[in-house]
């Protein structure tokens, strides 16, 4: 009696076309990928037409005055109920940790404080201005403006 030949269940998937497709996709993505992401800091500038009337009180704001040597003077305006140590402080050049600590302490005492105005000196570098803005943004200062010279 002749034995029936069983069909084998083993099969080989042809991976070569799949590899080709993957290689093409990887090449395409490698060529078209942008590795450096560019972002922007949006300044909330006040205009001359936005001036408050004589009886309108200015909202509380943090002023960051940058000096030519890189040091900064940070001062809160239009806010009286504030501990004396937080009303005004002076920070040495490139001490970004102190900037962030001060902004954090200020935000924990006065969470409604959203406005910050940076007053750069003529020799203040673009990098230091952006770094100050970055630290203030981190502490949720939503409206950051810059005072032109």
């Amino acid at each position: 009696m002749k034995r029936r030949s069983r069909k084998t269940l083993d099969f080989d998937l042809n991976l070569l076309p799949f590899i080709s497709v993957l290689a093409v996709c990887i090449s395409f993505l490698l060529l078209t990928s942008v590795w450096t992401k560019v972002g922007t800091f949006n300044l909330n500038q006040a205009f001359g037409t936005d001036g408050a009337g004589p009886n309108v009180k200015n909202p509380p704001s943090l002023w960051v005055k940058m000096e030519n040597d890189g040091s900064m003077e940070m001062k809160v305006n239009e806010m009286n109920r504030l501990p004396a140590r937080l009303r005004e402080t002076r920070i040495s050049a490139s001490n970004w940790y102190a900037v962030e600590s001060y902004a954090h302490a200020l935000k924990s005492v006065a969470p409604q404080l959203d406005i910050a105005l940076i007053l750069p000196a003529p020799d203040s570098s673009y990098n230091s201005i952006v770094t100050v803005m970055d630290h203030l943004k981190k502490q949720n200062f939503s409206q950051i403006g810059i005072a032109p010279l």
Binding site: T36, K37, V38, G39, L43, Q45, F47, P148
Partner: peptide, 21 residues
């Protein structure tokens, strides 16, 4: 500063600083 100031004078409502994200 001239770029910021002139842009505001020219009527642009917002100035944005380009940074590396």
């Amino acid at each position: 500063n001239p770029a910021v100031l002139t842009a505001l004078q020219a009527g642009f409502k917002q100035v944005r600083f380009a940074v590396l994200q």
